[in-house]
Amino acid sequence: MSQTSSAPAGAPSSPHHIVAFDPGDLALPEVEHLARALAHSLAGARDICTYPVSEPAPHDCAVIALDVAADVATLLRAVREALVAHGAAAAGVAVWSADTGAIHTSGDLADVAGAVNALVARRDQTGGRAILFPGQDDLRGVLPIRDMLARSAITAVDSLGIPVDPDTLVVTRDFVRPVYRDGRLVLALRPRADAMGCFEQPDPTPCCAMH
């Protein structure tokens, strides 16, 4: 893997809280919609990630990192109420606090495992696909890798072994979805004819297309 890192700007501070929920059997676009709605109702969202889990059947959990301190019990209740309001009553919820380092959960044991896994992956920056992150709005059009790293929370790119340098252009299509990996927020790239593109495309041949 070829990774180009940004200049060390100091690790970003830890979020105050990380909130994760497991919505059960829900399609990814709906999970994303629910997570954005929940983040909107909670103040101070820094980033939102989705995280795939395989039990009881393959689906995605969501994780929201918060920069605002709150009472954990209040937060759990607020998350629960927001999910109920959006029709996801059975969701397992997990909340982590930087102050105590403890993970609190709400929901049946079977429902919270996915949420806890997603939360831990985001906390340790080992997994999670960011659908919202600092600087995302500045990653539009065609940009050199240098600018993508400077303008956003992305800390590295993975170009699949294809040689790139900070001036290599990336066609963003205004759709950038980096993933947490090995303590970094990594943007995977794929080759285009005269540039690189984001690995994840906004309009992949659909999951349920018959092709």
């Binding site: 990814l28 795939p52 889990v53 395989s54 393959p58 689906h59 995605d60 993975d158 699949l160 995977a188 794929r190 690995f199 994840e200 495309q201 992949p204 041949t205 999951c207």
Partner: peptide
């Protein structure tokens, strides 16, 4: 032109 999903075999490289 797809990306890994929750149904994908996680160990496959990009």
């Amino acid at each position: 032109d797809n990306s890994p999903s929750a149904n994908s075999f996680a160990a496959y490289p990009l």
